[in-house]
Amino acid sequence: MPALLETQRSMRSRLFAPPAEDRDASGEELFAIYRATIVSALINALRLSYPAVLRLVGLEFFEGAASQFVGARLPSSACLNDYGEHFGDFLLQFPPAASVPYLCDVARLEWAVNRALHAGDAAGIDASRLASLDDKKLPHMRLVAHPAVSLLQFKFPADLIWKAVLDQDSEAMACIDLQSGPVRILIEREASGVQVRRLDQWAWELTRALALGEPLHVALEGLAVPSSEALNALLADHLTSGRFIEFSCPGDAHP
């Protein structure tokens, strides 16, 4: 009698690598039912996470690309909201998608939106704790970003394309200049929903460095900050909007 692990491994390989020469046609038909259920559940998860990509390429193309992606990469967790992070990278390498040069950028943006939608809840930093911070320590402060926050940079205006596609606004779509240069985006979750907004280059670079855990003085190195008022306003906005959930300074007892 085969051990359970052996049974499960052989079932898995039969599910995803059906025998080329089929000795048992009706057995294969039964496996095909399971295979179809798995593939359609995963394609459906991708459809929910990538609605703008779906609209850009159409259902048939999307399902074709998604089923190839599914075949190459199964989920690592049973939480399907977490499935499909690398679909944008897959599309970049997918020759039939080459005719839509901005598809990968839109997919990466949609993944960040999906992540923002499903990230766990976490309270922003308590302002009173920050107020008690020693001025000398401030430059050494490190921050932890809210799990819903992403900072992405795109070659194409992915934010405008994404919005026009989801709004089905063909006029707005027609006005988009694909050559307008790189865009730098902050994606986050507010009480009203997921927000996608552009930041100036200095603000984006500073915010990204802070989100990566760099100390403030390192994050500021070489940045073309327009004025100290602009810097203070940005930091104040970050803190009051709950974009960061924890901070630490060298020598702090708390994490």
Binding site: M1, A3, L4, T7, Q8, R9, M11, R12, L15, Y34, T37, I38, A41, L42, A45, L74, P75, S76, S77, A78, L80
Partner: peptide
């Protein structure tokens, strides 16, 4: 069962009805 070698096979797959299972 639906998880094997760190992969989630998104279906409720059947088990053999054995003492080990």
């Amino acid at each position: 069962w639906s998880v094997l070698d760190g992969e989630y096979l998104a279906d409720l797959l059947p088990l053999p009805m054995t003492d080990e299972a």
